[in-house]
Amino acid sequence: MKTNNTADTFILLALRLITYAIVLVIGYILFDIIRHGATALNWQFISSFPRRSGAAGGIFPAIVGTFYLVIGTIAVSLPLGIGGAIYLAEYAEQNRFNTLIRLAIVTLAGVPSIVFGLFGLGIFVLFCGFGPSILAGSLTLACMVLPTIIVASEESLRAVPKGFRDASLALGATKWEMIRTNILPYSLSGMITGSILGIGRAAGETAPILLTVAAFYLPRLPKSVFDQVMALPYHLYILATQHPEADRIRHMQYGTALILLLLVLGLSLGAILIRTHFRKKYRW
């Protein structure tokens, strides 16, 4: 028995060490980016245009560009995703058509981001004739986050107790009245926060916007949805790998990485906090 116990203790310790090693690595990545990035951060860096092709100045247009892309992605994907989720959670019976929809969602979730980029290039940039533009980029990103939004929203809808539905229908409400008055008020916050988590990740993606919207340097801000934009992930990629002075502008790279990280983690953290708040508010 004694040897058994010693071995058990050892294995338990090993499992704990492995888990905390992962935590340590994540901590170090965040620490490294924040420590070096913080030295580059100042008001000028955030609010001014790049100078000397990104070697000096700021990253203002890239922040604005990423912001526009996020807004565009939300505008397209949120209604489609939430609508689809309502259908799947409230209407869909088990039949061929609905199995096909679920299969499509699973497939879409597995498509590599660079393939979305090729798709966006083929359909939105070339076929629809939008050219590299905010519109083409947002549509591409929207296709990419659609499955995440549907899955998160469906989960939130299914969390509403069945009694809410029965009570409403028993009083003579139509199905849509029931959904509008008894389901959506309780699930909308969950749907939106779940969706923001997905969209936050899309904001940090480079591969899909590489071919559909991103420009390395633009002298002015975009005027319409048919204009190209600069974007934070693409800016970081070029500064770090393609820039002739890449070795000498580490502070600019770290600064851009930190802003991008703060944006994505900020969106995620905000979404999680809102979700916890509402989980406490509605409890049944």
Partner: peptide, 16 residues
């Protein structure tokens, strides 16, 4: 905490 890792953009990880 481990979920945070999934949120870090791949270009930032590449840079690291």
């Amino acid at each position: 905490f481990i979920e945070i890792l999934a949120s870090i953009p791949s270009v930032v990880l590449g840079f690291f």
